[in-house]
Amino acid sequence: MAQKLSAEYQARGLTGFIGRRVARRVAGGRGRVLKTPRKASNAEFALWQIGIVVAIFGLWEYGAAAGWIDTFFWSQPSQVWSKFLVFMQTGDAYVDTWYTMAATILGFVYGTVGGAVIGLSFWWSRTYATVSQPFIIVFHAIPKFALAPLVILVFGLGMPSKVAMGVALTIVVTILTTFTAVRAVDQDSEKLMYSLGASRWQVFAKLVVPSVMPWIIASLRVNIGLALAGAIVGEFISSQHGLGRAILYASQVYDIALIWVGVIVLSVLAVLMYVGVAWLERILLRGFMHGASFQ
């Protein structure tokens, strides 16, 4: 029917902008033509995004040259770039970047694994879980950065204190996520396992751990960011290496361009680690979910 109609309209020349108007009138003004947002292509998005970046840096550079941006506080892209080249040529760049990355990854791994293990342990005893609950909430509420000076005193100036900060930030979140997941384990499935004569250990290993896995995996992305923040704060307080220390040093000698270099290298590192974790997450989820939806 519709096809016949449109063929008829075509025969009457009712196509194109004017034609459609006429056709609408022909339809008696009932109904409206469906209008949905136009779908832009990926290339178009990329063009916009690149354009915005170029505009920001262009304005910054131009503003600094024209004098309405104070380069003492804000520096300028060309200065930052030359500082970047210097930074990369000195040996410190790699040491600092590596140091921060290693501290982050260690904090991430210990925090996530430790949090998952503690969270899972709550499944075994309701008394233990209930007694522990307020302590965890309190520790969760403490701003962990406030503990940084103490952490440095206890763990020293080296890597362990940076790792400890990363753990402090990640472990509580992971415990809480895992505990929520443990409580969400399907009661009927548990019942089924027991009806099949399962021991508690079997229910734990074959039901609880696999059910909780997707939740832990989902917390990885948040944790890598938190571990990085922990490492940087540790380096701010006191450190001999690391990007955090480099940024702190630059600010103490008023080398604004170097601050920007530190921030940019740090951002690139953060993005790379995030992408790496996102990739890991995809691999792990595929191994656990098999097309089932996340609870």
């Binding site: 399907d186 009927d188 499935s189 019942k191 089924l192 396992m193 009806s195 099949l196 004569g197 399962a198 079997q202 074959k206 039901l207 696999p210 896995m213 656990f288 979910m289 098999h290 097309g291 089932a292």
Partner: peptide, 28 residues
Amino acid sequence: GLVGYMLQKDLLLPWRTVLDNVILGMEL
């Protein structure tokens, strides 16, 4: 563990293949 029990929900474990779900009782 002395009688088989089946509920309205199938309760198949999503991370196990059909075969591995079916053998769950034997495995336990």
